[in-house]
Write a protein that binds this DNA or RNA. Sequence first.
DNA 1: CCAAATATCTGTACAATGTAAAGATTAGAG
DNA 2: CTCTAATCTTTACATTGTACAGATATTTGG
Lengths: 204, 204
Amino acid sequence: MERTGYHHGDLREALIRATDEILAERGLEGFTLREAARRAGVSPAAPAHHFGSSAGLLTEVAILGFEELARHITIDPAAPPLSPAERLKVQGIGYVRFALAFPGRFHLMFRHDLLVADDERLLAAGGAAKDALAGTIDALRPQSEDQPSDAAVHPLLLGLWSTVHGFAHLVLDGKFSRIEGKKMPDHVLNDVLPAVLDALLPKT
Amino acid sequence: MERTGYHHGDLREALIRATDEILAERGLEGFTLREAARRAGVSPAAPAHHFGSSAGLLTEVAILGFEELARHITIDPAAPPLSPAERLKVQGIGYVRFALAFPGRFHLMFRHDLLVADDERLLAAGGAAKDALAGTIDALRPQSEDQPSDAAVHPLLLGLWSTVHGFAHLVLDGKFSRIEGKKMPDHVLNDVLPAVLDALLPKT
DNA sequence: CCAAATATCTGTACAATGTAAAGATTAGAG
DNA sequence: CTCTAATCTTTACATTGTACAGATATTTGG
């Protein structure tokens, strides 16, 4: 934050931090490129030199979001071992836990109109998060299947992903208002979502 | 569209139509209040007299969207009767069919930052769509249950809604790019989504 | 039938936004 | 130490939503 002179010193990182702050404080709607520049103590045109455009800066933040999401759906190796079915449930809850903990980031990550949608690193970060689920799907499939039947398009992967993604969005959009009365987000994560996943996911 | 004199005659409806046109042609990102006014052949400040603000106009369009969605998830009474489980699947496919057919409307309906989120008629329209699903859930529950166990928070209702909602969003966001290559949206609606629902929904 | 009240629309104006273009300042390489 | 390239500022412009005051038409009330 300390400006010594004409040059900032670490403007790129400062802008990313400022953007993340805005997302946490005021949500995605609160973000403007000028506000991020203001928080970094810099002129409105400065960010362009580092990120090209507003979408460039937001893309960097979205990449960090996908990395954080991947951490939330990766099962702690030190934890006691779980069956594949149990792991799926834990990962699904981790997905929603991330969305409810960082709504601004979460919304940003899926607003491709605000991002450089074909950015290589963004696609890679999203793919890495998806792979964390695909691995579990692989472990769950019976070995009897001969052909390797691509896990990346396995109905169960698409289904679980869709379910937790939709669930998170609907909760954040207030569509489950009957439920949110009971102290968000604990009740949702501890009671509602597990019940939903139990009703849908295979038991084995 | 024909302006006779100073007054438009049916500006309210014309603005709603213009907005819907924009959503269909350029998506939600293409909408501006001034563009809607332009298409209706009217000054930028005119819409305020009918809708108060941009959010007011968008809210009216979102209400129409929810009504259209309700139609898509309502089973044709003239169709051959289906079991409750089959009906759920048909309704889920109808939900996604609507989202893929009207992406602009669909996105708008869940952007509560753009809408008058507490508008009575908007809430009612959303509730009506939800009820179309809740009825089927009710029919599916075994009669053995004594207490009426509110269908509005039934895990299966929340689960199915979440799944189709997330599925639609992910497809529209291009997250299922491996799949979309195969001529959208037919393949998605006829093959992918049914497989996903078969993997998750109860069979009975 | 005609005045007056009301509804509807225009014109102007303003603060914000993203970003383009050109110039100022500094850092770092040779 | 000089010069080149990177970094940041200043200025500027088109666009947006909408507030405000005035113009015009429609409807109401007598």
